[in-house]
Design a protein around this nucleic acid. Structure first.
Lengths: 152, 152
DNA sequence: TAAGATTGATGTATCAATCTTT
DNA sequence: AAAGATTGATACATCAATCTTA
């Protein structure tokens, strides 16, 4: 009769591993981008999202769609976009058909910075995954993620 | 002759999915814990870590070990621990053998709150995973994570 | 009245510098 | 001099409230 705590669920343990993996990778990539290019990871992600939209000739993105794609609140997104706009990396303009919404697209200067930063990002990401693969607690998840094929 | 961007690596796409999954789950669980028990997710995680250490009769944890387990910087950990200490949920005391380091353990009151919050946490976690499984971009990763068996 | 976006108030995370003990 | 922990300065995320257009 041991008065044990309720057992930790399997899902909780998986979630802890996921959170830990995410946290350690995020920290490493963030530092690499910040030092080499003065970009936070969120700023990089935003440029990346906008550039892919630009490349595939899609419509410029609205604030709300951006918020979803970088997993930020709408208000945080407003400020993120404002920061990058003031650095000349992207443009905002009112949507013609619905003047409540705002369209955002990357500038040439934003594309240039992104192109410069991408190798840094990819290398740091690779290194962070490799480092995590050594941790026995994270290794199985790392393997799963690396096997993953996410649709573009 | 299309001047294409360098292709997004497979690892980058996987990482995006991982970040997005992490972000959406974190937001949902955070809100549930905050509303029902006035605990942030980090605060919950800290209590959880300490309680498991307590349960398995292990040594109380040092600040640095705590920082690792909740993926926070040392200074953020100092503040996190200070907040919970001032709420009476954990105790700090100087380590006898090495007076540079500090040992931290959960209190009865902390355990009680944790026990109360755990069902909220687990239910929100379950719901968040289920919601993510519907998103075609996240579904494969969700399945992988749910199949995972993380060693305790 | 609702949707999209922004602003104000507040909390907490990070980096760099510092303090104490080893 | 280095390790563990903390503090000060600063940046950014969230919630709630507000503004504009539909």
């Amino acid at each position: 009769m041991t008065a044990t705590e309720p057992a930790r669920t399997r899902l909780s343990r998986s979630w802890s591993a996921l959170a830990q993996l995410h946290g350690t990778i995020e920290a490493q990539v963030e530092r690499a981008l910040e030092r080499a290019h003065g970009l936070s990871l969120r700023e990089y992600s935003l440029l990346d999202v906008l550039s892919r939209q630009h490349e595939c000739q899609g419509e410029p993105l609205q604030m709300k769609q951006i918020a979803d794609s970088v997993t930020l609140s709408q208000s945080a997104t407003t400020r993120l976009v404002a920061r990058l706009e003031s650095r000349g990396l992207l443009l905002r303009r009112l949507c013609e058909t619905d003047r409540r919404s705002i369209h955002t697209g990357v500038t040439a200067s934003g594309l240039a910075l992104l192109t410069e930063a991408r190798p840094t990002h990819d290398a740091a990401l690779r290194a962070a995954f490799d480092a995590a693969a050594v941790d026995p607690r994270l290794a199985p998840l790392v393997r799963s993620v690396e096997k993953l094929r996410v649709p573009a």
